[in-house]
Design a protein around this nucleic acid. Sequence first.
DNA 1: TGTTAGCACTCAACACAGAAGAGTGCTAAC
DNA 2: GTTAGCACTCTTCTGTGTTGAGTGCTAACA
Lengths: 365, 365
Amino acid sequence: MDMSERKLQILQAIIMNYLETAEPVGSRTISRRFPMGISSATIRNEMSDLEELGLIEQPHTSAGRIPSSKGYRLYVDHLMERDQMSQAQANALRGILREKTMQLDSMLREIGNLLAALTKYTAIVTMPQLKKAKLKHIQLIPLDQKSVILVLVTDGNIVRNHVIPLKQPLSGEELYRLSDVLNRHLSGLTVSEITLPLIQKMKGEMYIGHDMMESLLNAIHDTMRYADDVDIFTSGAANILNFPEFSNIARARAIMEFFQQKDQMLHVLGGDSAPEEENTAARDGKLRIRIGSENQIEQLRDCSIITATYHYNSQSIGSISVVGPMRMDYDKVISALEYLIHDFPDLFDPESSQEEDGYEKGREG
Amino acid sequence: MDMSERKLQILQAIIMNYLETAEPVGSRTISRRFPMGISSATIRNEMSDLEELGLIEQPHTSAGRIPSSKGYRLYVDHLMERDQMSQAQANALRGILREKTMQLDSMLREIGNLLAALTKYTAIVTMPQLKKAKLKHIQLIPLDQKSVILVLVTDGNIVRNHVIPLKQPLSGEELYRLSDVLNRHLSGLTVSEITLPLIQKMKGEMYIGHDMMESLLNAIHDTMRYADDVDIFTSGAANILNFPEFSNIARARAIMEFFQQKDQMLHVLGGDSAPEEENTAARDGKLRIRIGSENQIEQLRDCSIITATYHYNSQSIGSISVVGPMRMDYDKVISALEYLIHDFPDLFDPESSQEEDGYEKGREG
DNA sequence: TGTTAGCACTCAACACAGAAGAGTGCTAAC
DNA sequence: GTTAGCACTCTTCTGTGTTGAGTGCTAACA
C-alpha cells in the first residue's frame, strides 16, 4: 500500500482536528472542515488504509479515528507546519536574559518556569551535573567549631556547597591557605578526575597536622563523589491536569507520582537513549522527542516528552524537557525549545562551549 | 442544649468511623460498631442535637452524618486519643539525625520527605528566612572577570550564595581582604540590620578604588535585601490524590495548583494568624492546626493543615506543615510533628535557641 | 422523663431499556 | 477511482423503576 500525498493530507487533517478537540475524528468532519474535493466515503476508504498502516486507530467500532504514536511521529517528522514563535513568547524568554549575572542553576529554574507558563504543559529541568564540569574555584568557609563549608564553583558557573565535618577547629587563616592549595591542585579538573592518589599527593604541601589533614581531604573526596545526586526541578506539574486525557483520576495520579520520583525521571530524561530509539526519537540532533508508546515507562504511555540537552565542555550535563499529553501542540513546544537552543548556543551546542565565560556569551546575541 | 458525655461519645464514634471509611455514618452503624447500650433511635436523637450544634452535618436527607470543621476541631482539642508514635516511625525520623553535619536546608528537606512518607499526606516546608537570622560568616569567591559569588552563612547554618556583578576584575587576594572587612563589620547582624549607612561606613577601610567599592557594596546590599524570596519545598504532593475526597478531578487540580503557588502557600503557612483565629487554631502554642473551613483559602476548604514553626534566636524563621484531607489521621500527624518538636528542641522552642551551635545540640539528646 | 420500636418518607445509587446520533464498512452505481 | 446509500455497530443520553440506607416522627414503655 502506497503512502499517497492524499493520505498524508488526511492524516494531517485528523491530527490537527484531534489536537484541537481531543475527540475522535470522523470522515465527515474532515470532508467538511478540510475541503479537498473528495467525499467522506473516499476519506473513509483512505482512513481504513491509514489504520492498516498503524498511523491512526479506532477507540471502538463506531467512533472516529485518533492518531497513534506512529501517526504523531510521522506528523512531527514530516507534516507539521513550523511557524515562528510569537513575538510575545520570544520576549518572555528573552526576558530571562535581562538579569545579567545569574548562576546557571537559577537561570535554568527560570527557564523551566517560563516554559511551563508558555506551553501550559509541565517543564522538567535536570540541574547541571557537577561531576562532568570543570572546577574553577574551591573555597573552604568556616561554619562552626566542628565543620566547614566546601564551596565548589565550576566553569559552567555552577555553585554548590556542602558541609564537611572537622576533627578539630581550624582558623580562618588556615582555611584560606588550605583553599589556596586545593585550588592550585584541583582547579581545571572535573570532579570525577579528583582521585584519592591525587588527594594524597597534596598532603605534603599542607601546614596543619597530619591526620587532621588526612580526614579532611578524605571528607572532601567523599563529598565530591557523593555530592552529585542530581537535582530535578519541575514546574507546572498541575498544568497537565487541565487536559481531558487526565480527567481520569488514576491517570492523573500516575503522572503526578511520576513527577515525584526523581530516579525514574532521571532515567527517562537524562537517560541514554536505547539503541533502537536512535533513529526514531532523535531529531535534528538537538531535540529528542518521545511520543506515547515510545516511552518505556508505563505511566508515560499517554504522554509525549520533548527534551533539549545542554552541554558544557562538549559534555552533556543536564536537560530541559516539556512533558504533555500525546495530543500536545508539538509545534509550539518545539518552537519554544528551539528558540532556547538558538538563543543560548553555548549552552546547547556541544561544539561551541569550549571557551571561558561559557553561556554568558550566548545571552548577548 | 447541653453537651452530655454521651453526645461526645457519639461524636467521637462518628468521627472515628468516618476517618476510616470516608462514608457518611448512620445511627445503626454506630449502635452496632460502638456498643454503648443505647438503641439506634436514641443515637438518632442525639445526632439530631449534634447537628443542631454544628458539629456534624448531613450531605443529604437520607444519608448518614459526617463531621463538620467544628466537629473535627472539638475532636482534635478534646476527644482524640493520643498514642505514642510507633517505634518504626520514630526510628525513621531519628534516622535523619544520624548524618551529623548537615546544613539546615538539606535537613529540612529530609524532614519533609520523611513526613510525607510517614503520614502519606503532603509535607510542605518553608525554607529558613535569611532575613531574620544572624550572619555568621561572609565570603566573596571569584566567579569570572565580571562577577563574584557572595556566600552568606548564618548562625542557623543556613548557607546561601548569590552572584554579584563586578565593574572591574578583582584578584583573589583583594577578595579575601574584602571578605575580611565585611566579616568584621557585618557578622553578628541580621540581614535586615544591614543598612546603607552602615555599608557607607565601611568604605573607608577598603583598599580598592572608590567607585568600584561603591557599586560593589551597593550590590551586596541589594542582594541581601532581595535575596530572600523564601523557598518552599513540597514533598508527596501526589499522595493527596489517593484519597477519595480528591477523586473529583476539579478538586485534585485545585489542590495541585495550590501546591504550585508559592505566594499563596507562603501566605497560608508562614502567615501570621488572623486575630480571631488565635483561640481556635492554636494548640499548645507549638502546633497550629487549621481544619477545613478554618482555612481562608477556598482551595483548602476540604483540607486540614498542621504546622510547626521553627525558630532561631527566638525568631520564627520557617515552618513545617502537613496538608491532608479534612478527614486526616490527626493523631498520627500530630504525633509525628510533636516528635520532631521534642527531638529538635533548639529548632522549635523559641526559648532554647539562643546559644551558639543551635540546633546541633538537639540531635544529641 | 428518657428510651425504644415501628413506620412512613426521602433520596442517592444502581440497573435496565429505549432512543438518538455519530460513524463505519460494504455494495452498487457512476 | 469515486461516491451515494444503507445496514450495522456502539456509545451516550434519558427516563424509569427498584433497592437500600438512613432519617424523623409518633406512640408506647420503663
